[in-house]
Design a protein around this nucleic acid. Structure first.
Lengths: 226, 226
DNA sequence: TTAATGCTTCGACTACGGTCGAACTATGAA
DNA sequence: TTCATAGTTCGACCGTAGTCGAAGCATTAA
């Protein structure tokens, strides 16, 4: 009767509306405080605090204390991946997919998924560096080629320090809107933050949308044309 | 506050222990009756019926009536994928990963994931046909090459009828035990059933384990050596 | 020190949902 | 027809978990 890991425990954690809202908000990649998450979920501070300690105990979040603030963020890529997969199901199976609001188009075009670029532009990036031979798929894992090393360095990404870290360098992640892979892992993270540094993109406050500047998009398309 | 699809709804569906047990049981790929699922979950027939209609309404299951029996199976590959992902999280995050029983080793070696081969042998299959050039990764999708077509036909798989079907031919699926990809989609399904027809493998009754015959494993390793 | 802010803990209320017994329907067998 | 098996529906019970008010800590600012 009992076989395999205990799915129900974590599914139940995600299954509460308030907690689900918090997790969705955290998928922006930003760390948020208890109060921010409370308003995000539409509950009072007390209940939010209770929910967050449960999510923490369940291993879904990573808390960090900073002064009198307590910041929460998604615990790991694994968690983010499960959430994206769930979104995919919910978007597809949910008979009437949510109304396409003004922001919706922007979200489909480009958004952050935990901490890397997702949406149309995310898959464009992934497909392009794969096609250019900067990245190869070896069985299950993604591997950066020699040209990929050069390319990333030229873009101003410090690969050496990334490779020291314990998290995977390259990793696939599946979109719920595009249903295609985009680049996750520490390199995916590095790309996005580099784009921000270069002023190519800015993150929309209060949503997961990523907004390209006109010049930024031109440069992006030059480098990662389809 | 409300952004993206409604995660909570389906997560809550999976979050109930009884329902989670049923879904885990269905991950064997076999369609099961209401009574079987009831005993699987350790509840009475009535409650099982109630649970199953909820899962059905949520789009997670596909019901089929046959005489006075009602069979349920996992609705789609998407659902199976989410469940596998959840198992991965639960196995990793669950502080004390479940005791490694006698069946556990067998499960890690080879098991069915919804309807295709997973576990160590599953990733071996995937890696090998990729290395042999039968399969290529094009951006996000997997594509069978010309040599792959020949190879599958030689194995006695009717590709033409598979390609007529509306489900994807090739698809990646992530293991919770191996944390690596294996082959899903209708071709993955076809491979497994072909292995069964050839007598290379048999499915363990009442669990997800797949057992190789001595001769079967020899042939399998010949074709899909690492 | 006092005051203000951010968060946690306690306690009590409430409601939703899982559970089963019992009665009911449907299919198949004798 | 009658009986048996498979599944559904109804109704009632109960427990758990989400919710918030109020009080309690903890950290910073004045």
């Amino acid at each position: 009767m009992k076989e395999g890991p205990d799915i129900a425990r974590i599914a139940a954690l995600i299954g509460d509306p308030a907690r689900a809202n918090m997790l969705t908000a955290l998928m922006s990649g930003k760390a948020l405080t208890v109060s921010e998450l409370a308003s995000e979920a539409g509950v009072t501070l007390q209940t939010a605090s209770a929910h967050l300690s449960k999510l923490d105990a369940g291993g879904l979040l990573r808390p960090r204390k900073q002064g009198r603030h307590k910041y929460f963020s998604i615990a790991s890529d694994d968690v983010a991946q499960v959430l994206e997969a769930l979104m995919g199901l919910a978007a597809g199976a949910g008979h009437l997919r949510r109304r396409t609001g003004p922001k919706d188009a922007a979200l489909r075009k480009a958004r952050v998924c935990y901490n890397h670029l997702a949406g149309d532009k995310g898959t464009q990036l992934f497909d392009s560096i794969l096609a250019q031979g900067h990245l190869v798929i070896e069985g299950d894992t993604l591997k950066l080629t020699a040209s990929g090393h050069r390319f990333a360095s030229d873009m101003g990404i410090d690969l050496a320090s990334l490779e020291k870290g314990k998290s995977t360098l390259c990793r696939e992640c599946l979109d719920w809107s595009e249903r295609r892979s985009h680049l996750a892992g520490s390199l995916g993270r590095a790309f996005l933050s580099r784009f921000e540094e270069l002023g190519w993109v800015t993150r929309d406050q209060g949503s997961r949308a990523v907004i390209f500047s006109a010049a930024g998009e031109t440069r992006f398309d030059q480098l990662f044309g389809r």
